Simulated assay, not measured.
Amino acid sequence: MSGTELAARDPHADVRIEDLGSTPPILRIQPAAAPSDSALIHFHGGGYRKGSPRMFAGSVARIATACETQVFAVGYRLSGVSPFPAAVDDALAAYRLIAADIDPDRIALWGDSAGGGLAAALLLRLRQLGIPGPAGAFLFSSWLDLRNTAASYAGNRATDRIFSIELATEAAAAYLAGRPATDPLISPALGDWTGQPRLVVQVSGAEVLRDDSLLLARNAAAAGVDVRLKVYEGEPHIWNLAYPATPASRRAIGFMVEQLGELFAPVTDT
């Protein structure tokens, strides 16, 4: 299926959305066809300053239906009240809670924009603590280097109407609260990726965060990680969340479905 469009699924398919009543807050988004022994853990975007699982529930439900996989959407603390490391701590707590019931080999992380950065930071934190990590991670249009010095901020300024160097500067200042942006749990593109699972990285060549994804992909691949990088031309930031409305979003989610199938494929004896 690589490189092809995924046929659009019915956006009104039966999907159950349940608030787990947990700390941190988690929504369980479960399509009717999804098994309970595997899951995606989703971290929303919003520059660490805004957003919630409820805000993104519609897009996540459509993508969950395409993947035929339940999604646990995590409501991490936002930087206006709780700067770093609160979001990473919440991501870790959510992962521990979910992995208590589901084998980590049947879990994959998924994040968009700042949520992609948080998913990547969680992988590094799990390795620091010696906690078994997930089967892989899907990082879409991810904010991965909060130094905000990438050339694509200037090069794609005219083509990215959603994110900008001004917004990145404001959001980074709120999240950092005086801490160095070079901390790998803040800027995971700068981290040591040795021994990490497969990374599925998708980014638009027209967005200001393009170079963040390219830097992470390059550093992770150099550390021996299986990186599946897809660069889409001319698409807006987090275009995947428009699924199934655009051809590019269908291609992006089609690739996600393919890769998720590989990650969760049963291991057979040879």
Results as ranks from 00 to 15, higher is better:
179 R>S: 03
163 F>C: 00
73 A>E: 03
4 T>A: 14
115 G>W: 01
151 A>C: 12
264 F>H: 09
165 I>G: 12
256 M>D: 10
229 L>S: 07
228 R>G: 10
37 D>R: 06
222 A>Y: 14
223 A>S: 09
92 L>G: 01
64 A>V: 06
256 M>E: 15
261 G>N: 15
267 V>C: 14
95 Y>F: 11
52 S>I: 07
47 G>R: 00
149 T>M: 13
21 G>Q: 11
122 L>I: 08
30 Q>D: 07
206 A>T: 03
106 R>E: 15
82 S>P: 05
81 V>L: 11
6 L>A: 13
192 D>E: 14
46 G>P: 04
235 E>Q: 15
216 L>R: 00
43 F>C: 05
77 R>W: 04
237 H>R: 05
137 A>T: 06
111 G>S: 06
93 A>H: 03
270 T>H: 15
43 F>H: 01
37 D>T: 07
34 A>G: 03
212 D>P: 03
68 E>C: 11
243 Y>F: 13
86 A>F: 06
63 I>M: 11
209 L>F: 15
216 L>F: 09
17 I>W: 09
11 P>F: 03
43 F>K: 02
250 R>Q: 14
48 Y>T: 06
25 P>G: 15
91 A>S: 09
267 V>A: 10
226 D>Y: 13
74 V>T: 03
127 R>S: 05
173 A>W: 00
94 A>G: 05
36 S>F: 14
58 G>S: 11
154 A>F: 14
164 S>L: 05
226 D>I: 11
255 F>I: 15
212 D>Y: 01
63 I>P: 00
105 D>I: 10
111 G>C: 04
197 P>H: 04
190 L>H: 04
76 Y>A: 14
65 T>C: 07
197 P>Y: 01
12 H>Y: 09
252 A>I: 14
265 A>G: 12
169 T>E: 10
155 G>C: 12
99 A>Q: 07
257 V>P: 03
91 A>M: 05
155 G>H: 13
140 F>T: 08
135 A>W: 06
224 G>I: 13
6 L>M: 12
171 A>M: 13
21 G>C: 15
225 V>G: 09
51 G>H: 01
168 A>H: 00
189 A>I: 13
68 E>Y: 08
63 I>S: 03
25 P>D: 12
61 A>W: 00
89 D>T: 06
241 L>C: 04
64 A>W: 02
69 T>L: 10
205 G>Q: 08
121 A>Y: 00
207 E>A: 07
230 K>T: 14
106 R>M: 07
46 G>L: 04
171 A>E: 10
93 A>L: 08
47 G>S: 06
253 I>P: 00
218 R>P: 01
74 V>Y: 00
151 A>P: 08
128 Q>G: 14
111 G>L: 06
41 I>H: 01
